[in-house]
Design a protein around this nucleic acid. Sequence first.
RNA 1: GGCGGUGUAGCUCAGGGGUUAGAGCACACGGUUCAUACCCGUGGAGUCAUUGGUUCGAAUCCAAUCACCGCUACCA
Length: 511
Amino acid sequence: MGKENFYITTAIPYMNSKLHLGQIYEFIIADVIARFKRIQGRDVYFLTGSDEHGQKIYKTAKEKNVDTKEYVDKMVLDMKRLLKLYHISNDGFVRTTDKKHEKTVQEILTKLKDNGDLYKSHYEGNYCVPCETFLLDSQLIDGKCPECNRETERIKEENYFFKLSKYQDKLVEYLENNLDFVVPETRRNEVLGLLKQGLKDISISRTTVSWGVPVPFDSKHFCYVWVDALINYISALGYGQNGRLFNTYWPADQHHIGKDILKFHAVIWPALLMSLGIELPRQIAVHGWVLLGKEKLSKSKGITLDPDELADEYGVDAIRYFVTREISFGNDGAFTYQSLVKRYNGDLSNDIGNLVSRTMTMIKKFSGEIVPGKASNSGALVKKWEALKTGAIDDLENYRFSEYLTKIWEFINIANKYIEDMQPWNLAKSESDTDKEKLNAILYELVEAIRLSSVMVVPIMPGISQKILNQFGIDGNIEDFLIDKHGNWGYYSGGTKIKKKEILFPRIKEK
RNA sequence: GGCGGUGUAGCUCAGGGGUUAGAGCACACGGUUCAUACCCGUGGAGUCAUUGGUUCGAAUCCAAUCACCGCUACCA
């Protein structure tokens, strides 16, 4: 029997500017889940990619006086660099300028037309270029885009429309029968609200933009970027080309998106799929925004969080830890340097870092750099471990990242307290054999507790997990870990020689 | 305007009809040395937004009010 599949995606960011922490946040949470599913033994396909068409990118490139394709190529390279930097373990990367993707988009447009779900009509209204969004007059605030507060363009053109309204009832029915289709529940309610107010057909082509996928049956038209972008989730798997990936992984288990693009994913995307006769994704997981203090990140206002600077200053693992520990899934989360430093010094340096550090030193001083072998022990730590594990796994299954980490940290702190209670340094002074045995058992238990913590930490801070294991001389690549095996107390039998001690999280001075 | 959410210690939040309301951080004091001035222990601190209701009993349920947030709609 093969492994159970798991297909997880992120939204594909628009390649007109450098990625900010908000987008990195989405990659991080998707990556945490992807890694978590892998250690559970699932066959995971984790997709991300880049959205590269549309007027805005065309304009940006033109302003910079570079060829559009060259421009996006450069942006994509930088995105890939950041994915790597942040230890994002995506299996696939789709570009909307990939020939394969463009071909799929065209096939889909043809299919929609053949189904009778496309028709030609006139659109007259407003278009926000930065947001690539069509807006009704009523949606404008002082004639400006409600989302980015910038001037919109008045457009009047002939477009192809998709019969979105036709799918309204089916969508409501689907939402009502699938309680977990959109999470968290508040977002699901929003979608239901939207649907109950009635849907209008949407324009899915443009004639004024040429940087896009040509509509195959009408040379004047190019596919609207949002429709183009949504298709990435199946084009990347080779939909329509009898792709092995598509047959294996579709329907997606989780589409991760930000709350700002809920309508595209929970209304338009399923409607398109319904029209195409493709099974719907199992879940749209909607996260909130990362705020800087109380402010929404905004390039134009200069409110930005640069992933490179953050990685340089605090390390990628710390940032991954911070966003998962501090931001409750679905809600907006405040990033402040103060709270980051607090988490860093408190949870990372003092708790886990110091536990590793003191254990390393004790093994060096009391045990000749060799971790003692497995022996019978007091059972205090094992008991706590068994009590925590199942609950922690359940937390992560349900996007309770913070609770998951809290449980692991409880375990880490119990290990810290265990040292205090057992006072191994006094046992080390003793000449008696029973004390020596006791000491060895304690040291083994500590290393085992640390090892298990790092197994649980793999999804959150893969880099640190690997580092910790290496320090204790424990073989194995975290990528191959399985929770049912490596997550069992006593899996490690001890006896390894420790490596050079390395401070995992050097304390940061508070400014 | 409609729908939904939130309001609990200085801060971030958990809890949720039943003895003195919890955690982490911060603060104060004590202990310890294996450790990254770290860890362990103890302590102070809250009219659980306001008002009213249901109940033997409400932070917990209900209603109204106020404040903030999200979605949506703007009309005679």
